[in-house]
Design a binder for these strands. Structure first.
Length: 107
DNA sequence: TCTTTGACGCTGA
DNA sequence: ATCAGCGCCAAAG
């Protein structure tokens, strides 16, 4: 977990997000030791569109807003996927984010 | 090689 | 509580 590229690190963590849970760019960034550069996490996600097994819909910003919804095939797909996992969405925002929030951990 | 661009987050007003 | 501004650093043009 060290020789991996920046992108790969991000992807690896995103893949670890359990079903029905979400995490934030900030938490991922913090886990990577680049807390100040949470933007890089999102930027890396942009290149992740090629990875079909990457649950990008489980990654939201600090406020729990679905900022990346417009990057999906359809703007509504993201919230649909989240709702499908039992997560309630209101105005492109996750209700009770803290309740669904999942924080990356070291295995 | 230099410049622009972001799926963000924090601080100060 | 809300709003504007700054920082952060990799990738694409």
């Amino acid at each position: 977990m060290k020789n991996l590229n920046f992108y790969e690190k991000v992807y690896q963590i995103v893949r670890k997000i359990p079903y029905g849970k979400v995490t934030t760019y900030g938490h991922i960034a913090a886990h990577l030791g680049i807390k100040s550069s949470s933007r890089m996490v999102g930027y890396a996600m942009n290149s992740s569109h090629t990875l079909a097994d990457l649950p990008a819909h489980r990654v939201v910003n600090r406020k729990g807003i679905l900022t990346g919804k417009f990057h999906f095939p359809t703007p509504t797909l993201m919230e649909e996927l989240l709702e499908n996992e039992g997560i309630r969405i209101k105005n492109d925002k996750i209700i009770n984010l803290k309740d669904y929030l999942w924080i990356p951990e070291n295995d």
